[in-house]
């Protein structure tokens, strides 16, 4: 069974993934589809009664699912490698602007060195490559003890967001 790191408030834990990508098991009760599939089969999927998630690749525009964000229980953002940074802004927009409150999952070639940044941008689930040692990765959220900027997760040291 696939394992994930999940954040809940200030707790972090390793959990078994309840979700399946549609290509793994289309009959699972909680499935994740690609953006093109979502756009083509949106109504059918919504009528299926399943828990639904969409996976975006870095080139996908977040705006494409902005109006559906409250209907989705999960959005997964894929990272192609450590240098691929679009997902951080995608996460920011989903959390700040689309009022997405479901699971925001980082997936792909993720290194533990990115987890601190990701959590601050609003990710709360991390699907690391199979070979990764999740117990070691759990400690990565403490890489920096202070932050100047306010993030989605906590206030910054010196800067304040205007509201909320």
């Amino acid at each position: 069974m696939r394992k994930l790191i999940k954040l809940h408030n200030h707790d972090r834990s390793i959990v078994t993934d309840d979700w399946r990508y549609v290509e793994e098991d289309a009959n699972a009760p909680a499935i994740i589809v690609s953006l093109p599939q979502w756009q083509m089969e949106r109504d059918t999927l919504l009528a299926s009664g399943k828990k639904l998630g969409v996976k975006l690749i870095p080139a996908d525009k977040v705006e494409a699912i902005a109006s559906d964000a409250t209907k989705l229980s999960l959005i997964a953002l894929e990272f192609g490698g450590i240098g691929e940074g679009r997902g951080y802004s995608q996460a920011h927009i989903l959390r700040r602007r689309c009022n997405f409150i479901g699971e925001l999952r980082a997936v792909g070639k993720i290194q533990r060195d990115q987890l601190f940044y990701m959590a601050r941008c609003g990710f709360d689930a991390f699907e690391l490559p199979e070979a990764a040692d999740l117990n070691v990765a759990l400690t990565a959220f403490d890489d920096y003890s202070v932050a100047y900027q306010p993030g989605i997760d906590k206030a910054g040291l010196e800067l304040r967001r205007r509201a909320g």
Partner: peptide
């Protein structure tokens, strides 16, 4: 500089 230091969203720019 403080704003830019370890900024979570802009640490992996193009």
């Amino acid at each position: 500089r403080q704003w830019a230091t370890v900024h979570p969203e802009f640490a992996f720019l193009p």
